[in-house]
């Protein structure tokens, strides 16, 4: 490992983990898009940086033999946004990536950096929760995997412990069906005011839907009860009820992007719009 005093450039995940274990005040840097903005605002002042650029296994998107996918933590938003192999229910991951910030920032930011920061207004968290993605985490004890819904735990807080890092995001094989990510933002490239991520597939028992709301609380909101209402052969009353449940479960902030009340109003409307669009798309395919 080359050690440039304050900047560590590990060549492997194990080396990165051992640096983090030795230097608790060191910060990981991947694309820098968030970390450097926080340094510029004097919110953080790292004693040392651990650059993950040289860790090969963290880069790129690979298909598993079972049709699932592994997205390395250092994969840029640009590359996920350009990934046309994410079809069917997985299309929402590509859509979410394509709506992050703007083209220049998508050239910098990475999926691992984004989810480890866990800003509630980010695009990936609801998309990964709706897609039932798994987050792969490395520590000195090896690797573990957590469902995205358990990875995000609070405002800007994840299940990552000290000296742990995100190494990859795993997606299960796409089902035939639809994956949608809708984002309402003040202007193109802003953080979401409210977002909705939804997957829908159809089978003998009718449709199966999974919906997650973003930017409505500390973590993405997914309710099994709402998903059950949105599955089978739901009508308007089930859709309305699911929207009410999700709005009731929300804990949105009041900020420049919108009041908490406005965000609660948006939840059922954005859910209904995404649901209706997905259902029309499924109908067109069957």
């Amino acid at each position: 490992m080359s050690v440039d005093q304050g900047v560590f450039r590990p060549a492997s995940v194990d080396e990165a983990v051992s640096v983090l274990a030795r230097l608790p005040d060191a910060r990981l840097i991947s694309g820098g898009a968030t970390l450097v903005a926080m340094i510029n605002a004097r919110l953080i002042e790292p004693a040392a940086l651990v650059s993950l650029a040289g860790v090969d296994e963290l880069h790129g998107i690979t298909e598993n033999p079972d049709g699932g996918w592994r997205i390395g933590a250092m994969t840029r938003h640009r590359d996920v946004a350009a990934e046309r192999r994410f079809t069917g229910t997985l299309a929402l991951v590509q859509q979410a990536a394509s709506l992050i910030a703007n083209a220049t920032v998508r050239n910098m930011g990475t999926i691992g950096g984004a989810i480890a920061h866990a800003d509630p207004g980010l695009d990936y968290p609801p998309a990964l929760v709706a897609a039932d993605a798994q987050i792969e985490i490395a520590s000195g004890k090896g690797r573990r995997r957590l469902p995205a819904s358990e990875f995000f735990v609070d405002w800007y807080a994840t299940a990552l412990q000290s000296a742990e890092l995100v190494t990859a995001v795993h997606l299960r094989a796409a089902s035939d069906g639809v994956g949608l990510y809708h984002k309402l933002a003040r202007v193109s490239g802003d953080y979401a005011t409210v977002s909705v991520a939804l997957t829908m597939s159809s089978g003998v028992a009718g449709i199966a839907t999974r919906a997650a709301m973003g930017a409505c609380g500390p973590t993405p909101i997914l309710l099994e009860e709402a998903n059950a209402l949105l599955s089978g052969s739901p009508g308007e009353s089930e859709l309305n009820r699911a929207g009410e449940l999700l709005a009731a479960a929300a804990d949105p902030v009041d900020d420049v992007r919108g009041s908490a009340e406005y965000r609660r109003l948006l939840i059922p409307r954005m859910l209904a719009r995404a649901f209706t669009e997905a259902r029309a798309a499924i109908g067109a395919r069957t």
Partner: peptide, 15 residues
């Protein structure tokens, strides 16, 4: 060759 934000890039990380 890739467009980036100079304000979000740390010089030491551009080695």
């Amino acid at each position: 060759g890739v467009a980036v934000r100079a304000c979000l890039s740390l010089t030491l990380n551009c080695e």
